[in-house]
Amino acid sequence: MRPFAYERAEDPAEAAALVAERPDAAFLAGGTNLVDLMKLGVAGPGTLVDVRRLGYDRVEHRDDGGVLIGATVKNSELAGDPGIRRRFPALSRAILAGASGQLRSAATTAGNLLQRTRCVYFQDVTKPCNKREPGSGCPAIGGSHRDLAVLGTSDHCVATYPGDMAVALAALDALVHVRGLDGEARALPLEDLYVLPGDTPHRETVLERGDLITGVELPAAPAGAAMHYRKVRDRWSYAFALVSVAAVLRTAGDGTIDEVRLALGGVAPRPWRARTAESELIGKLPTPENVQAAMGAELAGARPLPDNAFKLDLATDLVGAVLRDLTEPEEDR
């Protein structure tokens, strides 16, 4: 790790100014991923600008059922927030499916959105990685890729976005609030925050230098909808997703689907909103056959590799199970 300066910003303008004057500065929030990457030599900022005291640490519920989640709200606080648990239980569950209790009590909303892939090559600076060193190559494609992406990949990168929280946020139509270097505020759909790798896998988000995520806004959940988050992983806790599903579902009296939102984790370089599958399912019963057909359409463009092709059927089966359980719940303890 190279030596760095540390600055604790007291307000957003100061944070912006500090980053503006130092080209190799980075924002520090919970640090659970950034410090990790600094130790590995993957990240090497010259200055860390601590943004945890800028006042973005509140969860503000609105009367219309929506909520504004501050960028530096701790994951554990967010998952435990009574309003979040009541209105967006799938978000709580997704957060609680991620990492560990101690990591969640340090990690923040914005940091979680911006965490980097856990691809073993990205994290090993002695090996090539197009994301870390553009043009150096992607050994994962011919090497270790079981945990990596099947959707949205390119010949240059097959990394997976590793998080859980953002998958639920994607299904909840989240908007990300950003403050630009010039103080200008803007909001963008969470899906639009992330950029697919293409031939520039080092570029992961649309954020520009000095852009600071200040919060995440959720509109009210659809009235009468049920929601769930389920994660499949190699052990029963404290592991990244092989595949995860966040689902919001509302059915009509006859059991047909009125409204459905599906987001997949563990399969793509970003939380993958399965809009094709969603539109296929509207007006239909969530039967295995219908889910199969809808997910078949969703996954038509998938680019599986030998060791992760199982994720396609697994994603389909997991979506089917989640939709089934939302309509006929079963205790799975």
Binding site: Y6, R8, L28, G31, T32, V35, D36, L48, D50, R52, K74, S76, S100, G101, Q102, L103, S105, A106
Partner: peptide, 12 residues
């Protein structure tokens, strides 16, 4: 709160 002290910078 419980935290992993290995990922907390002392300065922070």
């Amino acid at each position: 709160r419980r935290v992993n002290s290995c990922l907390q910078l002392a300065v922070a």
